[in-house]
Design a protein around this nucleic acid. Structure first.
Lengths: 357, 357
DNA sequence: GTGAAAGCGCTAACAC
DNA sequence: GTGTTAGCGCTTTCAC
């Protein structure tokens, strides 16, 4: 009785204290019946269900998430783990993921590792105790030790990688057809007269760094241009350092073309070129991976490999929900490649294309 | 016994089934003692605690989130609700929020409303049953009906708005000094010879739309320029429609300056100007709110009001955690204004500033 | 400093 | 189709 009064008292100030028991009492039903009204149960008559839902709406009640998760061992939550937030690729991908998740009535946790594998590991560790039902992740860097991923396997948490993966990860991976795009981008530079093409890579040991380099190398081979280690610049996560390294590369090895594996390295390259009084594309041609939607407004307009970020997010999420729906079917290692578009603009072309024509 | 075997069987495949009971048995302790090891309890000896934590680490155990949340009525989770993901402002703000949250060992849920108040309402409704301890939100649009926010109040969920708020929201709000920035931006256009300045607004009824317009109006007044309703364009969420409306505005009313309250409207304006063969800044001067970090690389370089997005996210999160730490202290309506920077570049200036000089 | 026991709100057998 | 009941894994009095 005291309990009831207490609850009743609270009610006035904090409706979150309503439970199915309260609802059941109000309606003269049992709590199981009320519970059934909120599940997809067909052990309940349509009228009763309607009556319960109406009352719930009236009282602003919805079932306590933690109680049902504890009971049912489901969290209705997934996690996204990404290395950074700096570019349109990730915001678009997240948008796609969140869209799919919401359509499935799932909630989405977001984590940013800042390209730090240690952070990635600690985040993963914080997820495996039931916090999430599944994980979408874009790998954060090299690190020989990916044992933190094992925890996801051990706890049967379906995991899908997107864009960036680890070599030793076995499971679903959704990414772009980066090898081919990189080959074509490099070929394009060659077609436009480049002989000394530098490759700017974010991290040679993470999948995209390596695969994009492979495409680059293949294009060189195809054209009997010798691969030169000096023209490959493996960068860090710091813009100032990167600019210095690019400046050094430009001064020392005088590339006539640059293929940048990520957008921000291309931006740094543009800035360095300006400072070094090099004209793009006349002195230096440039193409990069980017999902920026205003490359046409840059000066010069920027040639890019544009990944289908939004679709990649959606696809990755769809695969994840497939695994969640049928947890029994173990998905074998499987990689899905989505087509990127190559957009050739002024930054990479020998003959300037006039905009108005 | 059967139960034990079952659990033991599961153990081999799914470590998530370890509980404090298992840990307690293994160590010959009671589950309450084990539980205390994971809280900030001082009812436990340092050695016992260390022994428990070591074993937990060894077994890859961490306490079940849902059980403790159910028991303790805390979720260690906050939500971010934003209208869109399209620009750097939000990605930077989220980055700031996530950083603070992680430092507090909180998890961060992300929701995108796509500028739809209905979505916002349904998201909020899905949060009030204990899912989160607090909410950070940037308002999604007008809508006369903000009753969904009342649910947050009713359920005692601390809420902080950032960047965009509703007039009728009483509580903490962290935003930029938009009135002053807008006044100065408009004044700057006037100083550069503009007499017919159009104002492009995302939504006149959401706080930023209105306040930025107030700053714009003030600058007009200060310079005895009559405010003209026709020069204000209230836009929708669709780029094609917006471009058509901007084109119509330009053709019909021939503004010589544009002040855009958000970046994407400025981008649309640039595109329309190109199509209409208007030169920026010669025929049309332009300044806008934007957090883009490559405005200097645009053609022409874009004059902007740049908000401290990252700091805004951090501040908003800090205020939220203040409320979470002392739930008793009811925070009165309070607005925190952060200083934006005005960056005047070529798009708005009469005299072209040569880059190399 | 540690253990025993009650119960957070809900779900899912199982009865009827 | 509805009610009864036994826990999900944890925290927190309350003993000792």
């Amino acid at each position: 009785m005291l309990h009831f009064l207490f609850r009743f008292g609270l009610l006035k100030f904090n409706m979150s204290q309503i439970t199915i028991v309260d609802l059941a009492e109000t309606l003269g039903l049992s709590k199981s019946t009320v519970s059934r009204a909120f599940r997809d149960s067909n052990d309940i008559s349509a009228k009763t269900k309607a009556r319960i839902l109406a009352k719930a709406e009236e009282l602003g009640f919805s079932p306590n998430l933690y109680a049902s998760s504890l009971r049912g061992n489901r969290s209705q939550t997934i996690a996204i783990i990404i290395p950074e937030f700096g570019n349109k690729f990730f915001s678009q991908a997240i948008k796609g993921i969140e869209l799919v998740a919401r359509s499935k009535k799932y909630h989405t946790l977001i984590y940013v590792t800042d390209h730090n594998v240690k952070n990635e590991a600690s985040i993963v560790r914080s997820l495996v105790n039931g916090r999430v039902d599944g994980v979408l992740i874009s790998a954060s860097g090299e690190g020989k030790d990916h044992s933190h991923l094992q925890a996801l396997v051990d706890h049967n948490i379906p995991t899908v990688f997107f864009d960036r993966s680890y070599d030793d990860f076995r499971g679903h991976f959704v990414t772009g057809n980066d090898f081919e795009s990189s080959r074509l981008a490099t070929q394009h530079l060659i077609d436009n007269g480049c002989k000394r093409i530098a490759y700017l890579v974010i991290n040679q040991n993470v999948s995209i760094g390596k695969i994009r380099m492979d495409g680059y190398k293949r294009a060189l081979e195809d054209n009997r241009i010798a691969f030169q280690e000096e023209l490959v610049l493996d960068t860090e996560n710091d813009e100032t350092e990167n600019k210095a390294a690019i400046r050094n590369l430009i001064r020392t090895y005088r590339p006539d073309g640059i293929f940048a594996s990520v957008e921000r390295l291309a931006i740094s390259a543009i800035r360095v070129a300006q400072e070094e009084n090099l004209k793009i594309p006349d002195d230096l041609k440039l193409i990069c991976f980017s999902c920026l939607d205003i490359t046409d407004l840059l000066n010069p307009s920027l040639s890019v490999v544009k990944q289908p970020a939004f679709d990649m997010g959606k696809q990755a999420a769809n695969f994840l929900f497939q695994s969640l729906d049928k947890p029994t079917e173990m998905v074998e290692q499987q990689t899905t490649l989505l087509e990127s578009s190559l957009i050739f603009q002024d930054s990479s072309q020998r003959i300037r294309i006039s905009k108005k024509n």
